[in-house]
């Protein structure tokens, strides 16, 4: 230790930290980049092309090779190489300069989409990953799951029809459920509808929707609309969105006015000395959380009141079935209630 010098030791340590940071920082570190390039092989590229073509074909958009380079982050050379391989293998054919999926290509694309959406469903039901992460993780996993594994996954999840964003999951025979909806941004004032789909791409807009606590399957009513904003009421709350954000939410219009429940609100809005009847749990309350709430007695028809407010504001203790149960705000907002006017009980 003859050459020891504290400043030098400290600097050496900092240098080491910086090197480690650049090696291992999430998603951009050298370690991850190396792993990524290893994985972005021909299979991934082919499957990404198939998915892109499938989605565009569904909306009657013809794509040529140039469009591929604009939409996918692979180099021109790799794309052209793989497109010709795909044509050779009869996954694609050319119509003029537009690329079209063959029967085989269509089937393949559906399998990838099935794997993607099933994995998102799995993440939402059986793990604790944040909503923002589901899409990115499924983007990687869809290339890794074999057909058998996908079927096992579907069986494990009880053969779900829709993924957590409301997108239909194709069955193993390629059947796709169909939902008719309109973008929220195109609805007229006073339209009543139900949110059936929340798009998870681009991520910036998806995060805004999540931050607003807008939930799938909520009933909404448009109250105001102009070029700069759309205002709607849902579950006793008022939401204001920019049209570009609202465009990523799909709503199915409810014609039958009998079904409309304007008095439904969220448990999180219940105040001290108020009581309410539970209407049900929101679709966004999933997996273990949902079962736990049911176990505790938060079921349709149960009466609930506020027992204790918290000195820090969250969580709140609710009185249900004679027991005080504390729930956090984000849980209470996923329990739908109808307030009981003092004294008289509504059915």
């Amino acid at each position: 230790m003859t050459t020891y010098n504290p400043t030098f030791a400290l600097l050496l340590f900092l240098a080491l930290i910086i090197v480690l940071y650049f090696l291992f920082r999430p998603n951009k570190g050298l370690y991850y980049l190396l792993r990524k390039t290893k994985k972005s092989n021909a299979k991934t590229i082919i499957e990404d092309i198939l998915k892109l073509l499938y989605h565009n074909q569904a909306s009657n958009n013809a794509l040529n090779v140039n469009d591929l380079t604009n939409h996918l982050k692979y180099s021109n050379r790799l794309l052209i190489e793989n497109v010709s391989k795909m044509i050779e293998n009869k996954l694609l054919f050319m119509e003029g300069d537009a690329l079209k999926l063959s029967e085989l290509g269509n089937e393949y694309a559906l399998q990838i989409i099935r794997a993607h959406r099933l994995w998102e469903k799995f993440l939402s039901e059986k793990t604790g990953f944040q909503k923002e992460e589901w899409h990115g993780r499924a983007e990687k996993k869809e290339h890794e799951l074999s057909v058998d594994e996908t079927n096992q996954l579907a069986a494990l999840l009880g053969n779900p029809k829709f993924d957590p964003h409301g997108d239909p999951i194709p069955t193993s025979t390629g059947r796709v459920a169909f939902k008719k909806g309109h973008p929220l941004s195109e609805l007229a004032v006073d339209t009543v509808g139900r949110i059936i789909h929340i798009e998870d791409e681009p991520e910036i807009i998806y995060k805004q929707i999540l931050a607003e606590k807008i939930y799938l399957d909520s009933q909404i009513r448009i109250v105001e609309k102009d070029d700069s904003r759309i205002v709607f009421h849902s579950e006793g709350e008022k939401f204001v969105l920019a049209p570009i954000v609202a465009g990523n939410i799909t709503v199915s219009i409810l014609e039958n006015k009998v079904l409309i429940q304007e008095s439904t609100t969220r448990l999180s809005s219940l105040k001290t000395h108020e009581t309410a009847k539970i209407i049900g749990l929101s679709k966004e309350c999933r997996g273990e959380n949902r079962r736990r709430l049911l176990d505790l007695g938060f079921v349709k028809g149960a009466t609930v009141g506020v027992d204790l407010m918290n000195p820090l504001g969250d969580p709140t203790a609710f009185l249900i079935k004679g027991t005080a149960i504390a729930l956090r705000n984000n849980q209470a907002s996923k329990i739908l209630i109808k307030k009981i006017e003092h004294g008289k009980t509504t059915t």
């Binding site: 604790g128 944040q130 969580p315 203790a317 027991t323 149960i325 729930l327 956090r328």
Partner: peptide, 13 residues
């Protein structure tokens, strides 16, 4: 730990 299932409830006996 971000992938582990996370729930919350707290009984006040």
């Amino acid at each position: 730990l971000k992938g582990e299932v996370s729930t919350f409830n707290l009984e006040l006996p």
